[in-house]
Design a binder for these strands. Structure first.
Lengths: 97, 97
DNA sequence: TTGTCAGGCAAGCGTCTGCTTGCCTAGGGT
DNA sequence: ACCCTAGGCAAGCAGACGCTTGCCTGACAA
């Protein structure tokens, strides 16, 4: 559970993918590949990115929806919210109603 | 920098060590070894724990002080505070004075 | 139908990593 | 002096991880 999330965050390429999905949601695999290559100078094969996305999806950090032959990816930051409170203590005034 | 922190958090044993140091600060290597063995049923060699502590210290999550032949370890949660805001956005009401 | 394009599956390979084992240094007590 | 204890250094090993390559499936268009 939390283990999957921390392990998913351990790789710099996966963190860059999260950055990219935060900046422009709903990208397909090919869009992510080209933007990682252009903006971040990461020359990786399509399968490498696909495997990273699988790890992120298994951790619940990325959600996907299919439309025809396209698969769109979106960041889900919810699992990250209280991840480190285990050691920092709850943020005193967070979630004030 | 952030890479060291995420990589340090990726291992479940290291997260347990942080838990243990949060619960009772200032433990020595041997104290940590025995408590990991007793409370968490982790049978590891002393060197394994020592190497984990080195990783945590390199990431800035654990600080140490020597006294004679003892070396005491303390949790430093500061690097964890804003670690995930990169994707969650800043906590709206955090750090209110 | 045939061709093309987005994506998935699986095996293989090199590297990193967590852990062990063995030996070594330094501080403190008798 | 001697011994014991807390900790460090370094080599070695098995498994995990990141990435590639090659082939396959399914959706659309000509």
């Amino acid at each position: 559970m939390a283990d999957d999330i921390f392990k998913a965050l351990a790789d710099p390429t996966r963190r860059t993918i999260l950055d990219e999905l935060a900046e422009s949601p709903g990208q397909t695999l090919f869009e992510l590949c080209s933007r990682l290559a252009m903006k971040h100078r990461l020359g990786m094969s399509r399968q490498a990115v696909s495997q990273h996305l699988a790890v992120l999806e298994a951790a619940g950090l990325v959600e996907t929806r299919r439309e025809g032959r396209y698969k769109f990816h979106d960041l889900n930051p919810a699992p990250l919210r209280h991840l480190t409170e285990r050691w920092t203590g709850p943020n005193p005034t967070e979630d004030t109603p």
